[in-house]
Nucleic acid binder design. Structure first.
Lengths: 110, 110
DNA sequence: CAGCATCCAGAGCGATACTG
DNA sequence: CAGTATCGCTCTGGATGCTG
C-alpha cells in the first residue's frame, strides 16, 4: 500500500494488511467488541448482554475472527457451568492507540 | 463511545461518529479511493483505470458517499467532453494522519 | 468522458430452536 | 453458560447496456 502501483491489482489490495484491518474493523460489531474488551476482559454472556441487538451467532463469529487475527484471546475455564473469558492480546491492546487517534478524528469530522 | 453505557444501545452505537467512520472505511473500495486521492486529485476515469476490478456503478457510489461525508470534493468542469475532478477536502486530508497511524499498526500486526 | 438504469448473485447478518 | 444448527432475508456489490 505504500507504493500504490497503478493500476492497483485487486489481489494486492485484498491481501494488503491495511485493507484487511479496516475491513475487519468495518464489520458490524467488531469495533464495539474491541472497545468493550479494551475496558476489561469479558465473559461471553457479559459481551452478549453488553451489546444490545447482537445475536449469539454473530457475537461468536465476531470474537472468533478477532481471535484468529490474534487480537483477542479466548480462555476456557473447565468449570461447571463452563466459563469463557475473552480479553485483548498485546496486539489487540496496541490497536487501541491508533484506534483512539482515529476516534478523535472521527469525532471532529464525522 | 467514550463512556460506553452498558448495555450499549444499538442506536447509540450506530449513530456514533467512530462507528460511522470505520463502517465507511470498511466498505470494499473506500480505503483505496482515499489513498489514491491522497496522492493527488484524480478524474473519474483515472480512478476507474487505477482500481482493477471496480465497476463504474460502485466507483460512483463510493466517491459520492465520500463527498456526502465531506471527505472528497467533486468539481465538474463544463467542457466538452465533460471533466470531473475528485480531490480530498481538508477534512479528507486530515484523515490521512490517523489512517497512516493505523496503517503502520496493521503492517506490524496483520 | 462520466456517468445512469436495470437486473442480479452472493455475502453478511439475523431469528429461532436446540445442546454439552 | 456458552455456545451450535438451520433457515431466511436484506443489502452490498457487480454485470451489462445505454446516454447527455
Amino acid at each position: 500500500m505504500s507504493v500504490l502501483a497503478t493500476p492497483v491489482p485487486a489481489r494486492e489490495y485484498d491481501s494488503c494488511p491495511v485493507t484487511r484491518a479496516v475491513h475487519r474493523l468495518g464489520e458490524k460489531w467488531t469495533l464495539l467488541v474491541i472497545m468493550l474488551l479494551g475496558k476489561r476482559p469479558h465473559r461471553y454472556n457479559e459481551l452478549h448482554r453488553g451489546i444490545e441487538g447482537i445475536s449469539q451467532r454473530i457475537l461468536t463469529r465476531t470474537v472468533r475472527l478477532l481471535e484468529a487475527d490474534g487480537l483477542v484471546s479466548r480462555t476456557v475455564h473447565p468449570t461447571v457451568p463452563p466459563q469463557v473469558e475473552y480479553r485483548l492480546t498485546p496486539a489487540g491492546e496496541s490497536l487501541l492507540v491508533p484506534l483512539n487517534a482515529l476516534a478523535g478524528w472521527a469525532v471532529e469530522h464525522y
